[in-house]
Write a protein that binds this DNA or RNA. Sequence first.
RNA 1: GCCCAGAUGGCGGAAUUGGUAGACGCGCCAGACUCAAAAUCUGGUAUUCGCAAGGAUGUGCAGGUUCGAUUCCUGUUCUGGGCACCA
Length: 965
Amino acid sequence: MEYNFQQIERKWQEEWKKTNAYKVSNDSKAPKYYVLDMFPYPSGSGLHVGHPLGYIASDIFARYKRLKGYNVLHPMGYDAFGLPAEQYAIEHGIHPAVSTENNIQNFRAQLDKIGFCFDWSRELRTSDPGYYRWTQWIFLKLFKCFFNRVTQKAEPLETLVASFEKEGNSKFPYPNPQFKINNSSVFTALDWSGFDERMHQNILMEYRLAYCGYGEVNWCEALGTVLANDEVIGGLSERGGHPVVKKKLRQWYLRITEYADRLLEGLERIEFSEAMKEMQTNWIGKSYGTEIDFEIKSEKSETKKFRIYTTRPDTIFGVDFMVVAPELSWVESLISAGQAKAVEDYISYVRNRSERERQSEKKITGCFTGAYAIHPFDQRLIPIWISEYVLAGYGTGAIMAVPCGDERDFKFARHFDIPITNIIGPHFTGLDANPTKEAILENSSFLDGMLMRDAIAVVIDRIESAGIGKRKVNYKMRDAAFSRQRYWGEPIPVIWKDGIAHPMKDSELPLELPHVESYKPGPEGEGPLANIPEWTHRHLETNTMPGYAGSSWYFLRYMDPENQGEFCSRKASDYWGQVDLYIGGTEHAVGHLLYSRMWNKFLFDLGYIGHDEPYRKLVNQGMIQGNSRFVYRLHFKTAEEFSKIPVFISYNRTLTYSGSLGERKELCSELKALSDQFSELVPADLEGLEFSPLHTDVNFVDGFELNINAFRQWRNGEYAASQFLLEEGKYICGSEVEKMSKSKFNTVNPNELVLKYGADTFRMYEMFLGPVEQSKPWDTKGIEGVHRFLKKLWRLFFEEAKGKVWVDEKATDAENKVLHRTIKRVEEDTGRFSFNTGVSSFMIAVNELGDLQCHKKEVLEKLLILLAPYAPHIAEELWYQLGNLSSILNAAYPKSEKKFLVETSKTYPVAFNGKTRTELNILLDASQEQVESIVLADKAVQKWLEGKTPKRIVYVKNRMINIVL
RNA sequence: GCCCAGAUGGCGGAAUUGGUAGACGCGCCAGACUCAAAAUCUGGUAUUCGCAAGGAUGUGCAGGUUCGAUUCCUGUUCUGGGCACCA
């Protein structure tokens, strides 16, 4: 009986389906455990081997926890709204719902083959009205709530209105300090009662957690549409290469900034990697600084003052120039007649620069405005510049530049020849800036002689008492843009009447996405919904929600997926609580993971759930990179006509080819022999010959050797006429590790591997590749080794000639030692998500049991339970063959017994000054004195001592011995 | 540019707390079985000097701390991820 994986896997997958083996109940006496994967976007290209990496890891862990006696929730679903489906619809006229459904079918078929223990009865799709009804419902809750800074939580707007009626906005000032009504940022109860409805609504909009405002988008006039950042390349649209400029549009936002402090605080209570916490902390970017007002001296005199934000007020005497964000409208009032043209040119240059480009630009640009700021303490005149490196959205959009202490300021000063004031003495070398806080201040008037760190408070006190500024906490994080000018997303359930947004009633939800004939954008950059008369007649909002809306709360829906009356019952969310283990990629570090934490906190504030952090522990899975293969096409520079003939040269020959006359002659005759088309070719035509690399499909390259026949049939015979210049009779491809993607022809479909080696082999190989957290390139070759391991395991039970070989005898001590050491290792490895070493622990066990010729049921049975999370099909089959009647899925995880693992002695490495020279077997309970005498008596040690007396003998029990000479 | 991570044989990786660097697997080499091949099994495989015994070197690079560093510290290079409308 041989290992027929195809038959075994089919049999058990059917059996598990029939018995609902993976159905999870919300009603169980067992302790709960919630394992969640970041659900996939069902793209048209299907799964490649990179996708299942995290799913396999979580699947192993879920199965492991089940064997340990937990009631494990392990669901799966689809993040089904998104831009690619819409783009596909525009290009092919296929409704996104249709293409998405097809893609999901394809994903499901692929996932099923790998043998996951998902409870599919809980499957959800964010594009399903039954699901997005609740996304809309939560949005409306956000719309109807504000963040009470006194209680630090979300509360209904009614509380706010009551406070306004009683005491104006003195208790709850505008969250956006720039906001003013009637030129004032405060109003009284009397003011409030005097305002009309429109004014009330305008004010309330300033407080809502989901609010409408204005923001800039990438606007492409030629395409008549708003573009995503990754559709814009170097200021031009990816499709068509049309110019893209920034345009202000009405947009919805989520006031996530109000949660900034709580998002920071929550990080202390969850198990995310330090790197992840750091990324989120940096993204939130809380800084303690000072706002300072500077008087202005300019030709025009409209603006008298402007405000900067700095985290280093101690450097105020080192200010040599000011920089203001070019897009701020008040910049205009600064411009002198002489600088008008230059400033105008510069502003138009910045207008089509993306924020990213502006920040990462190495080239220093800027323009003097012609105006000066007056230093508040020494009345110096400081030139005011505009430059793209200052962004309008952060702080006040203006900075005081201190070149001796800030690298960017320093480079700017150097570039524009602005004299640099040194306030930090020897800490400033003149070669680069030094951001230290430890210097003693010089050239700093009343701060002279003070340590910078201590000077900060002194300056702030001076500034505050002089009434020219105040302490200010700032956040780099901005409110989250929550609308898209797209079709394929959740409609926003808001009706506009006379410019006032009215929420729809809960009973009217879901507001379903209407069918459209065309997915083209609406007028003035509005979304496609603006083209539907029935929609606009009802004055419905034409924007839709962004991709992250549905994924911000999905972990809750899995707990109670059928619930028609609530997004999730409190009973269900109290039972399942937090996600105990969340697995997904770091690419979601600051997007999804922050938004979903915020939504969760919001629902917690309103009492709908009982936990304020959604994920207790997060494990980041690394990317599986593609291992691309290249062929190299001959490109004739001086004789273009020959370039039309597709000739490819083997990789190593591209490296050695130098283009010498001799080589040209040789290559010339080789080409002539290859094809008659080259009969006219002369060596001179080969001058400047180039080899242009072309991605070729990895699926017809064995290692590095190209399957020439397959290549000729590729892409409907586009390269059928290809000729090849070989090396040693083969065509060898070049390679490069890069992102796995269809366009690079380096994707590998898990289905094909499952077909060839089985799901169990595939699962174990994905884990065997390396640590889950690490990115690594895919290489199909190594899968054979894992497959061999499973066959070897099989042979412990059945041999081809003899059939069944397992026996009912009692295990020896040696066999027990192997088993119990394996239990210990596998349990530890699985527990710390080190699945790659887990797999090798199994390999070692099977190798050792093979060496011992152990076929004892007692040992093998326990080994199977250990293996079941990794390779469920073969484990279940062998378990069944051993005569077990119930499924291995519900077996009890074996315990490692210490008595089989006790050692009495150890072979110690003996090192001299840290270099290992010999080994000695010594009893484990030996004392320092005993060890010293044993060591010094040893012959090899004597030889290395060369007659010297050791200065010291370091003995670390159960580790090593080191002799210091 | 900013933030985060990583770098170990020909390749993927192991070394869990600072204690024998290279577990396990791939590949490669040799051998067994076979008419042959596949499959399977056995042995070898960091580099370098040496017939060997044995020695020297070695964890991206340059320093440092330590009896001892892949592990800790400082600097640096390269690669990957993110940077707010891809998901």
